[in-house]
Simulated scan of single mutants.
Amino acid sequence: MIAFSQKGTGQALILIHGFCESKEMWKTFSDHLSKSYQVFCPDLPGFGESPLDQTQISLEETAVLLQEWMEENHIHHPFIIGHSLGGYVTLALAELMGQELKAIGLFHSTAFADDEEKKKTRNKTIDFVKKNGVDKFIDSFVPPLFSEQHRASQSEKIEELISFGKRSSKQGILAFIAAMRDRKDRFDVWKTFQGPKLMIAGDLDPAVKVESSRLHQPFGTLYHEMIGVGHMGMFEQQEEALRTIEKFLSDRSG
């Protein structure tokens, strides 16, 4: 079962949250964008209100679950924008569904697979979660996602995201760390997807290096780099992020 929120009418827009996040993170974006679009925000399995009944899951399996969810809810030719892990899922959906998607967007995400150093970090994270549990992990995981200069001003949002993150199941966290570690390179999917493509990057992103993001630019439709922003640009520079998404969508609607 995929839990989700839905608001607005018209062209379908799906916003997919990242690792240890949930549909609530998109509330401001959903409230605003639903004036022009029908906005869906699903909880990925193991996060928010969506259960995960298995100990392992791949991005390909996640994409199939979301495809089935779209069919059940009569969501056709959507725009899909994914944050971080949500971007990896978006690319898996693009590979699975192709031109059934109207457009795709990566928000602090990448089409590249993990390198060996990143895989080692993922393995250490798995060990940490197994040893210390969800709450301690989330407490240490969320604040560094924000650039240092924004942590004080975003302290309330950080606490809110920590609260949402602690609803994540241990099983879901462990399954998706492994899924991210083992995901395949989808840069060819990014290059060859025929619909419009958006990328939003942060020049201070600790999780997706900006140099990696820039390699996507020649193959995208709209590339936007946010200055002084870490991995959470939808909060660190909310208005700028929203304007960028609005521009991308409005230029391609109809």
Rank of each mutant, 00 (worst) to 15 (best):
M1E: 13
E95L: 09
K120T: 04
A12D: 11
T192E: 14
S84Q: 10
E148Q: 13
D251N: 15
L198Q: 03
Q67H: 13
L204M: 10
E156F: 09
I81E: 01
E225C: 03
P45R: 12
D203K: 07
T244N: 03
E236G: 10
F29K: 02
V208K: 10
D53E: 14
P42N: 05
H108S: 04
L106M: 08
F248D: 11
L93D: 10
R214A: 03
K102D: 07
L204G: 00
G82A: 09
D251W: 10
V64F: 08
E225V: 02
H150P: 01
L215R: 09
F112Q: 11
E156M: 08
H150M: 12
G172P: 03
T62G: 14
L161N: 07
M25D: 13
K247V: 02
L93T: 09
G46K: 08
A94C: 05
Q54V: 15
H83M: 06
H74P: 00
I245A: 11
A94P: 01
A207F: 04
I2Y: 01
E117M: 11
K197T: 00
F248P: 07
V142H: 06
E240C: 02
S250C: 05
A111K: 00
L65Q: 15
Q171D: 02
V208Q: 13
G254C: 07
P45T: 09
P196F: 06
P143W: 11
Q6K: 15
E100I: 00
K119R: 14
R214E: 08
Q54N: 09
G230L: 10
V208C: 14
T125F: 00
I126G: 12
P45E: 05
T110D: 07
I138W: 07
Q238K: 13
K157F: 05
Y37C: 08
F176R: 09
Y223P: 01
S169D: 03
V229G: 10
E21L: 12
H77C: 11
F141S: 02
D205Q: 08
V208W: 12
I227E: 15
F187H: 09
M226G: 01
I81V: 13
Q237L: 11
